[in-house]
Design a protein around this nucleic acid. Structure first.
Lengths: 154, 154
DNA sequence: ATCTCTGCAAACCATTTGCAACCGT
DNA sequence: ACGGTTGCAAATGGTTTGCAGAGAT
């Protein structure tokens, strides 16, 4: 979707913080980077990794994701379907998610449009806002189109 | 925090949809209304209800919350602490939550400030947006103050 | 009297944890 | 060789479900 850091950069960050560069961690980062637009869950990452090394355990995937998250390399998102999903943090720190309630499509909006809103909130509440978590729900263009057609047929 | 519908109004909505008005449902709605500012979890509602009728089961609380949610009477929110929380849907349909990352305070902002952002997103993506889920994270005024004092002491 | 609703306990499912073996440094 | 890291299996914790009995209409 946009230019990402490559594997080596991520791995060198791990090394810099004195974490070991295991094959498992390498694989997990690699799969995470290659499947970035899909917002994979831990289980899905586990399967992707397993297709290359069937010895890797699910617990390791969870532990690695947790580590990457603490290092701000990975972002954990919750779309309300009962499992967490993970995405690399790109250079753009914030982006928004649009979820289609019909087909489940997840559309990303690269820009952060909430700066103004946060300023208003700071002025109004005295909070020092440092982060936000935003999801928009609605119909994607395709499903919207199908709905209009269905209405016309009645 | 703001004028809510009273119990009778909610219960008559249930009756209108042909659901039975049981003592358990009465109690759950009542506790939900009386504890509106606290964003109780299912377990917390369960305890509140149990203080009045120790026979009520946790499953009933979950089933009732699910029902109320389907009828748009209750809104389920996820603050990322592993359990869902519930609040009555007031007349104002949307509001935002500000979460203090230090003390856990949850501050509500009654107004919906996202209309403009949604318009931009619609224009940009073609989605027909119908709802959103927004949380802001930061320091509440009190914790911000404590932090400033701590810095001064160094 | 009917049929929904309830309580209980067991099932579920994502995630976490204890522990002995393993492997990157 | 040391100590972080792993795989396994068991534990956890919130939520759901099957079922027989209870209660609202």
């Amino acid at each position: 979707m946009e230019g990402h850091e490559d594997i080596e950069e991520v791995l060198s960050r791990l090394k810099a913080e004195d974490f070991k560069l295991t094959q498992q961690r390498r694989l997990i980062v690699q799969k995470l980077l290659s499947d970035e637009d899909n917002h994979p869950s831990a289980e899905e990452i586990y399967h992707m990794v397993r297709s290359e090394d069937p010895e890797v355990g699910l617990a390791t995937v969870y532990r690695t994701l947790d580590l990457l998250q603490r290092l701000d390399i990975v972002h954990k998102v919750n779309f309300g379907d009962g499992k967490a999903r993970y995405e690399m943090r790109g250079e753009q720190h914030q982006h928004h998610h649009l979820l289609c309630t019909e087909c489940g499509l997840i559309h990303e909006v690269g820009e952060d449009l909430l700066g103004e809103v946060e300023e208003k909130l700071t002025a109004r509440t005295g909070f020092r806002i440092s982060d936000h978590d935003v999801k928009f729900y609605g119909l994607c263009p395709d499903c919207l189109c199908s709905e209009v057609q269905a209405e016309a047929q009645q």
